[in-house]
Design a protein around this nucleic acid. Structure first.
Length: 273
DNA sequence: GGCTGAGTAATACGTGTTAA
DNA sequence: TTAACACGTATTACTCAGCC
């Protein structure tokens, strides 16, 4: 026999169900709601964790139980399928929504991160294994350069056993279909570069490899950070110092961002460096 | 057994960087 | 200039040890 309950929960189940499950209020907001509704100070209302405990006792669904394990596997498989067909992230998300998955931005991002379906990563752009990389016509004629061969070797070294297994078990017609799709993407990409309608790629992006490093930017404003540092003869350390200095100047001048500056204010800040 | 508060994990949102 | 992307941080959800 423990101490008697401090709160009378018996007639609160339905209203809690409505607030938590139907209205999807957060627990702090439910505490607030109870305080306002019963005209009590919040200190007189059960704590946030007490509400959580009650919800669990009442078998209310948790906010994290969005899908069953089986559903999640299905969703993952479908996302992988689209990703492997080089569908862009936005189109994958759109397709999944159209197929009825209740997928918000966070869910989508977490799913892709968990399953290694990101176009970019902290360690830079993941180079594509050469056998997945689209080849241009000139590649086909000239063959790989020494640098490309080295990249190819590195890429092969980095391929996971799962990737290798998947690659070798892909049905020939599926492999051909993907190769064709990649070739189309590469042709479009080459054409856009040739007509200066797209920037050069300084790193691989998704299935597309980086462009030839000897290609310069289209416009001055497209110079990469590394190129700027080299031009200004800045080491990473001096570059970071310079950034800190400029941040301090901007703070002093009350500058939030370049586009919100008064006429000449941005230039004046730069001149102080 | 009921309750609290601390700690951890999951989620949401804002921001900087880069490519289109 | 805009959109896509990844990351950092704040907020929220949840668990659990320990006290009453």
């Amino acid at each position: 026999m423990g101490r008697p309950p401090k709160y009378d929960w018996d007639d609160k189940r339905d209203i809690c169900y409505k607030l938590w499950v139907v209205d999807k209020l957060s627990t702090p907001n439910i505490v607030k709601w109870f305080a306002e509704h019963f005209k009590l100070p919040e200190s007189e209302v059960p704590s946030v964790s007490q509400f959580h405990q009650k919800f669990r006792n009442w078998n209310f669904p948790g906010r994290r139980d969005k899908w069953t394990e089986e559903e999640y596997e299905k969703l993952t498989a479908r996302t992988k399928e689209l990703f492997e067909h080089y569908v862009t992230a936005g189109d994958i998300q759109k397709t999944l929504k159209e197929e009825g998955w209740d997928l918000n931005d966070y869910d989508f991002r977490a799913l892709r991160k968990k399953n290694g379906m990101l176009m970019r990563s902290m360690n830079g752009y993941k180079p594509l294994p050469s056998n997945k990389r689209p080849r241009t016509e000139s590649d086909a004629v000239e063959g790989p350069t020494a640098e490309e061969e080295e990249q190819q070797q590195q890429s092969e070294d980095q391929a996971t056993p799962e990737e290798d297994a998947q690659q070798t078990t892909l049905p020939p017609e599926e492999a051909a279909r993907r190769a064709q799709r990649l070739a189309e993407l590469q042709m479009q990409s080459d054409e856009l570069l040739r007509t200066r309608k797209r920037r050069r790629r300084i790193r691989g992006y998704g299935p597309m490899p980086a462009d030839d490093p000897s290609i310069g930017p289209r416009y001055g404003s497209e110079t990469s950070l590394d190129e700027c540092k080299a031009f200004l003869q800045l080491s990473n350390e001096t570059y970071m110092e310079l950034r800190d200095q400029f941040e301090a100047i901007c703070r002093e001048e009350g500058i939030i961002k370049m586009t919100l500056c008064a006429d000449g204010q941005w230039q004046a800040a730069k001149d102080r460096l």
